[in-house]
Amino acid sequence: MLVYVLKRIGLALVIIILAVTLLYLMIHAVPGDPATVMLGPRATPELIAQLHQRMGLDKPLPVQIISFFGRVLSGDLGTDVFQEKPVAGIIISVVPYTLILVGAGIAWSLALGIPLGVFSALRPDSWIDKVAGILSVAFIAMPAFVVGLYALLLFAVTLGWFPVIGGGEGFAGQLHHLVLPAFTVGLGWVGYLARIVRASMLEVLAENHVRHARAHGLPQRVVHYQYVLRIAILPAVTIVGIGIGAMLSGVVFAEIIFARPGLGKLIFVAVQQRNFPLIMGTVLVTTTLFVVATTLSDIVNALLDPRIRERL
């Protein structure tokens, strides 16, 4: 088991390092180096050279990459050349907003998606199951940003039930501001979770041990919610990790549409400014969070399933 956990963490580290190197290489492979792109066409050679030196771009590429990782490990993500502030500090100040949004999105999609899937699986091919199935597919297919825009238009601008912009003050205010963005990022995952739970529930219901449990007279309630759901929930746990990762990326739209502070809003502004250190820092942090989330869900999944736990 321990070996598995260590292996999984090792793989995660390799992936993060590869991803960042790839990104770094890409940035340097394009014609026109970051300094020129940042300063625009009218920059003087002196200015460019100065910026090169400040960003360490005058050294050979492998040295740059290694020193970049060295700095990252010591918590230094570079300096934002526009605001003259450390990138790490800027990112840390907005990370909580994004994490809260992702947490809220996952929480409500779990709270609705799992019961919906269980409910459908226990009444296969009923009209409720069919409606739930169509809704799930629709939720998955609809792009989150269009959902967000429609929600903004209907609930905030037209009906005025929810605030249009900002992160909110105080607990109640923050919660109030969280509703529509969380709705936006979570809706697709309601569909995913409902489908996955329904499918795995149906699969488990058809397994021999369910008939065995029924033959021993266990009550329906125990069979469904303890004997079946405990197995059927496992794929949902795995998918939650991926869900968190995907949401980290999906929050960009929600944060921009609802003008919320967060990683998405940060990178949006950074891209508009062509602010490379900030872009690199944000991508690095989100990639890391993404990989950590998927790795954790794999490990949790292994812990929950005694069959896998044993084999490791």
Partner: peptide, 24 residues
């Protein structure tokens, strides 16, 4: 019927490998 099953009539199945719940 549920109170008959496993109480008055019990059953042993063919395949022991799949008749017990794997995660309990």
């Amino acid at each position: 019927m549920q109170s008959v099953r496993g109480n008055e009539i019990s059953m042993i199945f063919q395949d022991p490998l799949t008749s017990l719940n794997p995660v309990i």
